[in-house]
Amino acid sequence: MRDNRAWLGVLPVLLIVAFSAVIPLMTVVNYSVQDIFDANTRIFVGLDWYRETLRDPRLQSALLRQILFSSLILALEIPLGILVAKSLPRAGRSVGLWLVLLAIPLLIPWNVVGTIWQLFARPDIGLLGATLQNLGFDYNYTAGTLDAWLTLLAMDVWHWTSLVALLAFAGLTAIPDAYYQAARLDGASRWQIFRHVELPRLTSVLTIAVLLRLMDSFMIYTEPFVLTGGGPGNSTTFLSQYLTSMAVGQFDLGPAAAFSVLYFLVVLLLCWLFYTSVMRNRDAH
């Protein structure tokens, strides 16, 4: 139904999001073109902060780490999520129970996820850390870069694979039974059924899963902050943490604002890809 009066329904949301998004974004853009000393002393510097930020080697390495981290967790969580979804029973009374069990990590506050893994992986009091030490591995996630990365990856897989699994499961249950029967009549193997019957029908739901995980992993802050604090050194400092240390730690308004604008642009692009694929998926139904 076409009716422009529907704008009235949207107006409250517009006002509240304008207050909490538009005004701050405009402010960030304003800050990003000035050198600000205090409320009254500021100099217009044009696009210099952008030039400087784009060439900042610490930011570039934070970006590289971010890209590596996001790619690794996608490579781990998407196949594992599909595997878990495939192992779930399709019918029967236990399905609901299994799904709630899978959802548990998604429902835990993010800083508590960090705390859980800190308590689990510490070499002195953690079950995982101490066991690895007793087995003769020199494992310490606060000292070794590789250990810190492995722990972070294990934590993120623990935290978010369930989301991929739940999405994939929703996609799998939507496949009509007739497809399976036809494939069985043709004598297709299990792999062939997965490759030619299931995977093509999971594409749209998996696109959503990939983009959701990509965007959320791009703004990861709380869990590494609690677990490793960005260390050892800067080896687990990702974009949000670097930005936070710039904005709050050093109070560099100009460069932090330029960084914020660039960060927002990247997320905006990802979000647009996400929205386009969701809408295309919906129109196809």
């Binding site: 422009n4 005004i23 405009m26 402010t27 304003n30 800050y31 073109v33």
Partner: peptide, 30 residues
């Protein structure tokens, strides 16, 4: 509004985007 630290170039930039949005909305209606 002092804390928003407006400058002339950014004000013009946002005014231009705002104007474009208004123009597009009017165009869409007409």
């Amino acid at each position: 509004m002092g804390w928003m630290a407006w400058t002339l170039p950014t004000a013009l930039f946002f005014a231009a985007i705002g104007l474009a949005l208004v123009t597009l909305t009017v165009l869409e209606l007409v």
